[in-house]
């Protein structure tokens, strides 16, 4: 099927010798939004880190195909060029590198990989203004150091702004709702929704149903101890919100 963006089969991974992922199977197609929920320590962030290629994680088994290519063979930058984007739970501050220079490096590197010339300064600034509007970001942010002195909400908005600039085929939003007040949550979620097309897909990792009121998933997975123990429609998130995870854990262990 050529509408498959990401296919994960039996993915297992360790960090510092500790087994975190114990066999994940997941298929994501064009146009789909998947939510991954689960209690603390279930492996949600590890999954996103492994998919983005974070060093120090050791893949011990399984296969991941992204846009028809072997994802696990690719460097983090190659994954980005191929259309993968991770919105960080804790975005990193890069003092001394302005947002505008950071994104110029990133966008032009993406263009270079596609055989396109760098954008002119004017075209770049126009694109930047357009994409900042997606998350209602003030233009003063462009000359500030990347995430330096940003509030929690501003950092997350900056993540979604970067996503808008890079137009990924697959966006992984790792607890994008953490540390956000209601207004920021609404802006961030609206930004994500505006970027949705029939050709791309998203994985939304979250603890709470709250975010899923704004970004409505097609499929909800519950991750527990490194395995997906339940997959269902969006109603699963509501059920988890009401009843917690215990009943699912008992069900899976029964």
């Amino acid at each position: 099927m050529n509408d498959i963006i990401l296919n994960i089969e039996g993915l297992a991974a360790t960090i510092d010798g500790k087994e975190i992922l114990k066999g994940i199977d997941l298929t994501i197609r064009k146009g789909e939004t998947h939510a991954i929920m689960g209690p603390n320590g279930s492996g949600k962030s590890t999954l996103s880190a492994v998919l983005a290629g974070k060093p120090n994680y050791n893949v011990t088994g399984g296969k991941v195909t992204f846009m028809g290519r072997d994802l696990l063979e690719m460097s983090p930058e190659e994954r980005s060029w191929a259309g993968l984007f991770l919105s960080f739970q804790y975005p990193i501050e890069v003092p001394g590198v302005t947002n505008v220079n950071f994104m110029k490096s990133a966008v032009n590197e993406h263009r270079k990989q596609k055989g396109l010339p760098p954008l002119s300064a004017a075209a770049f600034l126009k694109l930047m203004r357009e994409k900042m509007a997606v998350v209602e970001m003030d233009s003063s942010f462009s000359s500030r150091g990347v995430n330096v002195g940003f509030s929690g909400g501003e950092k997350k908005r900056n993540e979604i702004f970067q996503m808008a600039m890079l137009e990924p085929s697959l966006a992984i939003l790792d607890e994008t709702d953490s540390g956000l007040d209601v207004d920021a949550l609404r802006i961030v979620a609206a930004g994500v929704n505006k970027l949705k097309t029939p050709d791309n897909a998203a994985i939304v990792i979250t603890h709470y149903q709250r975010l899923l009121d704004y970004i409505v998933p097609d499929v909800v997975h519950v991750l527990y101890k490194g395995r997906i123990i339940k997959t269902a429609g969006k109603e699963l998130a509501l059920e988890v919100e009401k009843k917690g995870y215990d009943w699912l854990i008992h069900e899976s262990e029964a």
């Binding site: 930058e77 980005s80 890069v94 990133a106 993406h110």
Partner: peptide
């Protein structure tokens, strides 16, 4: 890693970090 995840190649990311 943050910079690389945005498509900035390792060599360039190292330079940006030194400039920063």
């Amino acid at each position: 890693f943050y910079m690389r995840s945005r498509g900035i190649a390792l060599k360039e990311a190292r330079i940006l970090q030194q400039l920063a």
